[in-house]
């Protein structure tokens, strides 16, 4: 019953147009105002507004709450460091989602392709600048769907172990206790799930990785940049 009321109230709300043409509203208006008055206050508002949905989006990719939250926090930190609120004239929302997806993708690549973990500077450079790439937007959406499908098709016990260990961040012993299985079996389930994911992730999805979201620079580069400016 309660659900029913909730649904009708959403579709009949005067603030929503269920089937209307796209209308771009500056949803960030109040946050912009806050940034202008007090940057910290603006940052807090922005965080409170987007943290949950961003974590939810990130966790679809990385399947770990801790990793998702850390990653979203990094995006906000980088937003603060770069004073991004002054540079972004279109939409904070689009920037945040794009940045979170980029970082989630970088994380996956590093985890499933055994790449060297990127430095902080490298990660900060994956944050979006300029316009977004249509194909990339779609591919990111398809990527998390593929991951979800993969997890869903795991055998039930394997899926349970995977979700408890990764998503909920439980220790092997806790899971063993709860499911009444041996820690050895847990490891087997986990490696099976990860192997499956690795297999799925390596299939074709990374064709634009070579020259796309792969900026790199050593931490040294920043120092070099500064010295040459000083000269």
């Amino acid at each position: 019953m309660a659900e029913h009321i909730l649904n009708t109230s959403i579709t009949s709300s005067p603030f929503r147009q269920p089937n209307g043409d796209p209308v771009v509203l500056d949803t960030d208006y109040l946050i912009r105002q806050a940034f202008a008055e007090d940057a910290r206050r603006g940052c807090e508002l922005l965080f409170r507004r987007y943290y949950r949905p961003l974590c939810s989006q990130a966790v679809r990719f990385v399947h770990s709450r801790d990793v998702a939250e850390d990653l979203v926090s990094e995006v906000f930190l980088s937003f603060w460091k770069n004073q991004a609120h002054q540079h972004i004239t279109t939409s904070y929302q689009a920037y945040l989602y794009a940045a979170v997806r980029n970082r989630a993708y970088t994380y996956l690549r590093q985890e499933f392709q055994q790449e060297a973990s990127p430095s902080q500077a490298e990660l900060d450079r994956t944050d979006p600048v300029g316009s977004l790439d249509p194909e990339q937007l779609l591919q990111y959406t398809e990527l998390y769907q593929r991951i979800e499908d993969t997890v869903r098709t795991l055998p039930p016990q394997c899926q349970r172990v995977f979700v408890m260990s990764r998503f909920e961040g439980k220790k092997h012993l806790e899971i063993a206790d709860e499911l009444k299985i041996s820690p050895k079996t847990i490891e087997a389930h986990l490696s099976r799930a990860l192997a499956k994911l690795r297999q799925v992730l390596q299939m074709g999805l990374f064709f634009w990785l070579t020259c796309f979201t792969q900026p790199s620079t050593s931490p040294m580069a920043a120092c070099i940049g500064q010295t040459s400016v000083a000269e």
Binding site: L25, R65, Y97
Partner: peptide
């Protein structure tokens, strides 16, 4: 593209995977 993110955000809010502790 901006509109895509507006709707992604809205969809995500309706389908939260979990409620992160903000």
């Amino acid at each position: 593209q901006i509109q895509y993110m507006v709707w992604l955000d809205e969809w995500e809010r309706h389908n939260l995977q979990y409620a992160a502790d903000d």
